[in-house]
Design a protein around this nucleic acid. Structure first.
Lengths: 152, 152
DNA sequence: GGATAATAGGTGCATATACGCCTAATGCAA
DNA sequence: TTGCATTAGGCGTATATGCACCTATTATCC
């Protein structure tokens, strides 16, 4: 009877990806009126909080691949929400900063985000949500390593 | 002192998305030798377990948008791992099924997946992982609703 | 049975994600 | 100071994700 086959619900990766899609669609529906996606909101919010940062620094904070963040900056820079400059102390680096327009957009988006958070807490439970965030924070800081190359 | 500004780590959406990226990269590194991404592996594994299903049915199971699954089928169909046919009882529907080549690829990928699961449990803790999966299953089945339209 | 509503997917568009390879700039050592 | 390793990003490519809008097909109601 399917001995050895993985049972539904046993895959850590599928479990978290399904949940991420579920939650993302919910937050996106709240943020939609602002014209920001959740990823864009995250970038703006973290950058605003951290202050000017390089691509590598911000990418690490967001657990984003460096090149992914680089591309995600495209729409934000195009719309004048994030400024990208060259670090004078290291001209290899790009310094990112939230523009005034970006800050205004962020303020508006934070209102929607607060609504989403409240709705989430009501549906899922505030304490459960806090516990889940804590667990996920531990997970993100857990070094899972990578697959060993198939060397002999 | 930043009163009212969301503190880092308070956003449910960012927390789960960061964790999803972290875990996805880990599982992808294990599955890479098979030529399958985690999403493709999920599709094959679920379809194999559920048996032939329509796009809508499989998409709901995977918490994927219908159109997203439709596009994700492209590479799988191109590589002959999934067969897409028309349901004779309802010619609007497409019936998906794992091909023989798909089943073989899946068997190979399951070995890598098992390694990844073992590594995950070792690093994060087996009981903690099981508890997290359970929590995420509850979350996925929690109706978060959607933002109310800005009606009058 | 024919008009109409509802459903299953497809397509255009835009963003999200990351690997591999490349160039530019910096750091370091002989 | 020059030569090489290291580091910061960019770019090509491919897949992932979902909304708005569209067609085809089926169900329903008079």
């Amino acid at each position: 009877m399917d001995k050895g086959l993985p049972q539904p619900g046993l895959c850590n990766c599928l479990a978290i990806r399904k949940a991420a899609r579920h939650v993302t669609q919910y937050y996106d529906s709240h943020l939609a009126p602002t014209g920001l996606r959740t990823t864009q909101f995250s970038i703006l919010a973290r950058l605003k909080r951290l202050g000017p940062r390089t691509i590598n620094e911000l990418a690490a904070d967001l657990v984003l691949d460096r090149t992914t963040l680089g591309r995600n900056l495209g729409p934000l820079e195009r719309d004048g929400l994030v400024a990208v400059g060259v670090d004078p102390r290291d001209r290899r680096s790009r310094v990112l900063d939230v523009t005034e327009a970006g800050a205004e957009r962020l303020t508006e988006a934070r209102r929607r985000w607060t609504d989403a958070q409240r709705g989430f807490d009501e549906a899922f439970g505030g304490p459960q949500a806090a516990a889940l965030r804590q667990t996920l924070a531990v997970l993100v800081n857990t070094d899972l390593g990578a697959a060993e190359p198939p060397g002999q």
